[in-house]
Nucleic acid binder design. Structure first.
Lengths: 229, 229
DNA sequence: TTTTATAAAAATGTAGATATTTTTATAAGC
DNA sequence: GCTTATAAAAATATCTACATTTTTATAAAA
């Protein structure tokens, strides 16, 4: 029997918690992460804390200067634009490969996830709505990308996604609570699904790139409003 | 005045050293990295060592299982194939963007680096030859990629490059010490440069993808010969 | 052979010592 | 007075050594 992963060590927990907090905007961009504060906030020693921070430095969510500690990575309009452009281009490539390589099961999964996403309605709390819609939305796009059948391309995709997560979170709050915005997205997803299932690579990839770029102006507004840049 | 980077901490040094050793094949894939061995080998305490390992786990060069320590990441034919495929596809995308976006300075840099690469001859020691050729080879490809003008795409490119580095190192030793192989590469680079400067995107991208895939069969042979898989 | 008990080895975590940076206070020069 | 330079103090980051927990190896018993 395969042994279930044992007790996760403290660094792993700290890593997850801190990453989540950074993405959710608990810290402001550029904020100093003092070891003494982190120790009390997450209730552990410096060892595990430093390990968690080291990983986040690797992922570029935190910056480090030797002997001068750690800071939350900065955010900027410039980064936002490049990040979303890179994501759109990569997603286009991945989709092109998926259309060339994907089989029947790939098509079926896309339809399944598209259906689940379109059925998100009438949820009680706002937070619940945000969670459910985002989960299904990611599942839908994940199902499309999976067809490229390349673990390493999917990994780079996931990495860019993580990088964008802080920006994306701003957009998510704007979109999910607007019936109009949600409806626009629903139509885009339906059209995208049609083009993909018709294996029209050129059309589908263009639509995908445009679909990924639509949040950019919205995020720009929120960034200026909240004084984050 | 910008303050020069101060004393780098021990974790940074350990990270560089360990990463280099893994890439150069000092450890065999899957080998256990015992803390006590690492401590004596790199002459450090556990703290900095664990920080360095945490970063390498993020980069997937090392794997970790909680309470059971660290291991050098495995290598496999399957991973080799996916890695090189992903690299070729991404490099094709980056080149397509570079041809669309690159300016005069981009063209000039490519010509400059291509020239430097073609002039690598008559070096004394074998190791020196390997270093110089590889440095200029990377500079040439780097100059091409730079035209895409996207820090994040270049970053994902660098990450995939790092992932492939262990495999690539095997190929490099085979190629640099074969006059015939070097000459073949020289012709490929010249043809590639021509297509790029002619801004023939379709042709250049196809050539680039093929160029990046040529090492795969060679590396497969070396891997089986050396019993690394 | 398989299981259980025991001992050794290894990984992880904490606390305190050391070194570095940043802040604050003080004094000198313009 | 205002700025700049210097020195002491505080805050902070980093590292090592030791203590604790968990895993792995070994040997005895079923």
């Amino acid at each position: 029997m395969t042994r279930a992963s044992p007790r996760p060590n403290l660094a792993i927990g700290a890593y997850r918690h801190l990453k989540r907090d950074i993405i959710r905007g608990v810290y402001t961009p550029g904020e100093k992460l003092r070891m003494s504060d982190l120790k009390t906030r997450y209730d552990l020693g410096v060892g595990p804390m430093r390990e968690a921070l080291s990983q986040l430095v690797s992922e570029r969510l935190v910056t480090a200067v030797s002997q001068r500690g750690y800071r939350v990575a900065e955010m900027s309009i410039k980064e936002l634009e490049d990040l979303y452009d890179a994501r759109a281009q990569l997603e286009g490539l991945v989709l092109e490969l998926a259309i060339a390589r994907g089989g029947d099961d790939w098509e079926a999964q896309i339809l399944a996830k598209a259906h689940a996403l379109s059925k998100v309605v009438e949820v009680h709390s706002a937070d619940e709505m945000l969670d459910i819609w985002d989960t299904r939305h990611q599942a839908f796009h994940g199902a499309i990308a999976a067809g490229c059948d390349s673990p390493h391309l999917l990994q780079t995709r996931a990495w860019l996604f993580d990088q964008a997560e802080r920006y994306r979170h701003l957009w998510l709050c704007q979109t999910v609570f607007s019936a109009e915005a949600l409806d626009a997205k629903r139509r885009e997803h339906a059209a995208l699904t049609d083009a993909i299932l018709a294996r029209d690579a050129a059309k589908a990839c263009t639509m995908m790139r445009e679909h990924l770029m639509t949040p950019v102006p919205i995020i720009k507004e929120v960034l200026s409003e909240q004084g984050l840049v």
